[in-house]
Design a protein around this nucleic acid. Sequence first.
DNA 1: ACGGCAGGTGTACGGCGTACACCTGGTGAT
DNA 2: ATCACCAGGTGTACGCCGTACACCTGCCGT
Lengths: 243, 243
Amino acid sequence: MNPATTGSPAPRQRLSRDVVLAAALDLADREGDGGLSMRTLATELGVVPMALYKHVANKDELIDGIVDLVWAQVEPPDTSDDVTHWRPAMRSRAASLRRTLRRHPWAVGLLETRMRPGPANLAQHDAMMGCLRRAGFSFRTTVHVTSVLDAYVYGFALQEQTLPFDTAEESGDVARQKLEQQPAEFAAAFPYLVEVVTELGAAGYDYDSEFATGLDLILDGVEHLRPAWSTVDAPPPAAGASR
Amino acid sequence: MNPATTGSPAPRQRLSRDVVLAAALDLADREGDGGLSMRTLATELGVVPMALYKHVANKDELIDGIVDLVWAQVEPPDTSDDVTHWRPAMRSRAASLRRTLRRHPWAVGLLETRMRPGPANLAQHDAMMGCLRRAGFSFRTTVHVTSVLDAYVYGFALQEQTLPFDTAEESGDVARQKLEQQPAEFAAAFPYLVEVVTELGAAGYDYDSEFATGLDLILDGVEHLRPAWSTVDAPPPAAGASR
DNA sequence: ACGGCAGGTGTACGGCGTACACCTGGTGAT
DNA sequence: ATCACCAGGTGTACGCCGTACACCTGCCGT
């Protein structure tokens, strides 16, 4: 959309932190984080590498910046009518987070080392905890739910990215051919993996439904298995008006 | 233990693939994956960089190698008496996996891109699925359980590594001082995060119990919420003798 | 005694992040 | 209208990285 973010020799508008970050995000999406270097980013912007350092302190800060741009794309939980709708709100926020991580696979591996959360990240988590608190969950429970939900989504995205096929149909082919090129002792050594390969080869593997299955399992657990968790152990902080 | 793996100018025994991998693992543990370079690894082994390439094809293959060494450290599920003990078996395997990832934090971020699982990785997952299959879980259910469990452990390890404190006591200090150096509008913008900071500052944050809480939630879900899952939809493959 | 070859060496190349000194064009105060 | 200033873009250079390629060396089976 922005003329400065569309690769190519460059029309050369004035640089700014936002322009640099947008171009970096675009480059990372196209090339993966391995392909994101200060030098190629600079050439894409039609500028000498050192020019970037007038707008970002160093590559690390640049990465913090684009990671937060990614966070900004995650839809916060729907906060209308919190008390009854916390479950669909959590469910669709989790789905949005996964979709976002799938759209920017490099971010999954990058968030790992980033220790300084940006404003969008903070806002996202504040909204999430707010939704749960206002739905009546105790403080401790809110922490637990946030923890388990984010861990699941994050871990699932990681697996999804690591597995060597993208679609259900493809999964069968890849699995079958992987299996065929194995030595014979393989089948004997790992019978259960062979089962996975053959079954998945026949039926395919659907990330979406696999994700939903695990997510619902966890949400069911939150809803039914821990009634004590719903006890309000302290009133949530006033959202802005009281006192 | 191995004289060639203990850093320092080096006694110079003969090199081999295993020696190289062991030294690389040791270096990665000490320096993080950023500090693992072919050149420093070579000097630690008292050898010129190119010598390593007689034993590993390239850095990528070397990393695949040490990642699989890490997998070898994960205790497989206890397979005795599978039918009744699948739950404790899964529970302690998950704990072992987390402990291992905590011991080698760099591996969490590395497994991400590695698409070629090593033998230890395969053995680990075969053992896990075997345990569940023999406990009577259907094939599909086994896939679901494996998926959700590994995703959780993996995601938890990722969060654990990203959070900026290591112990419960430390968490309070870090949180408090982070909060103090924020501008005043922060508190107004993110009331629920402020609550987290203050509460955790008071009570501390214990990774171990947080991990156990989420893990038990998931295991409860597997056990109670999905009775249909236990239906055996096909006999597990014979472990070696039948037919 | 000797040829081969596994394993260690030396040199070199292109790419990376970024420190530092420099230039330049537009702005605000005079 | 002048001019000093300075934000923003430049050029050069350094030290690190992975690794290609030609080479040497010392042990082994014959």
